[in-house]
Nucleic acid binder design. Structure first.
Lengths: 253, 253
DNA sequence: TCATTGGCGTTACGCTTCGTAACACAACAC
DNA sequence: GTGTTGTGTTACGAAGCGTAACGCCAATGA
């Protein structure tokens, strides 16, 4: 898992003592095992004893590394955020920058296929908080949401830069959403300018994408064939792109 | 809760013995209590002991009524389906039949506000299956999905009947989705005709609606104000209706 | 009227989990 | 070598699940 903590700025205090390395490795192994168990048994309800057993340890030993189940969960959630973020970013960057529709589709596909591959972890970060787990106040939950969305944002910013971004289908924006855009602008002064219409369109796209993904990942579209779901998804993403003002090639792929 | 079981055709075998009535009442009370606890503690992970304590009973007594936690969950899930279905249907019927946009918005609002009011039960039926709970094979899960969707379907059918349904924004429909439409037609021969474009548009609408609802219900839109969310939702639903070919009044409400 | 039957709820139990406490051992520092 | 720190163990108490064995009560039948 190579924990990769983007939160503490990777100060990389170079001299990592033997012990510290061992500790870090154990932490990674715990998280890896926990993640695997979670995916395997299809539940976010992980048991310390299971993890320990799987690792050839006893349960109380884990408390040396995580104070309780919630702390472990918090770590797993943070890692999952990062993983999804990285995955989506990689997908976006795997397509030439001028192929805006291609990038949009790539991001959508990455989001969707990750969720379908790992519905439990998808639910872990973007579904309901784990049973009995109280997310740290105003914690990583909304953070993750925004990070996922920022990948979409990036596409819109890029399209706008290139002058390839048309007006969205809906140009009416409610006053309160205009204010909201203003606040976002102040919160992220380094980001390119974003119009209220674009802000609204981005949110629309993201909610759309999430809807299909969530339904499919949790099996609520199983009554249509996988091929039909694929076709549906592509048309769905096309629709989202069109309504958001992104340039979309005419030929239905 | 007055259990209202639409599955067994309410044969209403009239002579309900005193005992049977008592038993039914207890079952209802258990389900009520379980539901309440679930909503209150924000978790689908309910404990028999808690339910029993709340009812002034002991845990083992509950096993007279439900063989195990899964059986109780199955019952709760079924009830929740029915409740949501009824709620949405009521919302739809609360608006004059010729006000198509009004009905669409009402359905969307009902779905959304129910989910936000009761995110746990929303997750219970439309999110990830409960930890440790294996849904009965091909069971109520997809049933619920289809039932929720049927409310949307009804609106489209009605609009089509009235000749008020325009073409959706996307009229390309992939071959495999056309076949899928055909199969649906055969599965529900009593339903009005539905074109592939319409079938696709309905699915699009539903996935959209679900996306916003799911994000909001689980707190992932908390970084914008409730008022902004309201405004966003209305514009979102408008967009969905427009792209689906439903008649939408020009004035942005 | 009185015994029987069946449903319901109880206490008692075994098993498993969580999380803490007390102890044992290895690595490291001086 | 000796003390300190980190890591893992076994031992324990509290709480949950689900089963088993028992007591109580209402309904039934002679």
């Amino acid at each position: 898992m190579t924990t990769h903590l983007p939160h503490q700025p990777a100060a990389d205090s170079p001299p990592l003592s033997r012990r510290e390395r061992a500790r870090a490795a154990t932490i990674d192994e715990i998280k890896e095992t926990a993640t695997r168990l979670m995916s395997e048994q299809g539940t976010t309800d992980l048991r310390f004893s299971d993890i320990a057993r799987e690792m050839g340890m006893t349960a109380p030993a884990l408390y040396r590394y995580f104070a309780d189940r919630d702390e472990l969960l918090t770590a797993l959630i943070a890692d999952t955020y990062d993983e999804l973020g990285a995955l989506v970013a990689a997908a976006r960057e795997g397509v030439p920058a001028d192929d805006i529709w291609g990038r949009f589709l790539a991001v959508a596909n990455a989001y969707r296929s990750w969720a379908s591959r790992d519905p439990v972890r998808f639910a872990l970060i973007l579904g309901m908080p784990v049973p009995g787990y109280a997310a740290p106040e105003d914690g990583p939950t909304t953070e993750a949401a925004k990070r996922a969305m920022s990948q979409l944002k990036a596409i819109f910013f890029h399209a706008a830069e290139q002058g390839a971004l048309g007006p969205p289908l809906l140009t009416d924006v409610h006053e309160v959403l205009r204010e909201c855009t203003e606040m976002e602008k102040q919160a992220h002064p380094h980001e390119p300018e974003q119009s209220p219409e674009m802000f609204q369109a981005i949110l629309h796209s993201w909610a759309s994408l999430h809807g299909f993904t969530s339904l499919e990942a949790h099996g609520h579209l199983n009554w249509i064939s996988p091929e039909a779901r694929d076709a549906l998804f592509v048309s769905y993403v096309r629709l989202a792109a069109i309504t958001a003002g992104l340039p979309v090639p005419d030929a239905p792929r």
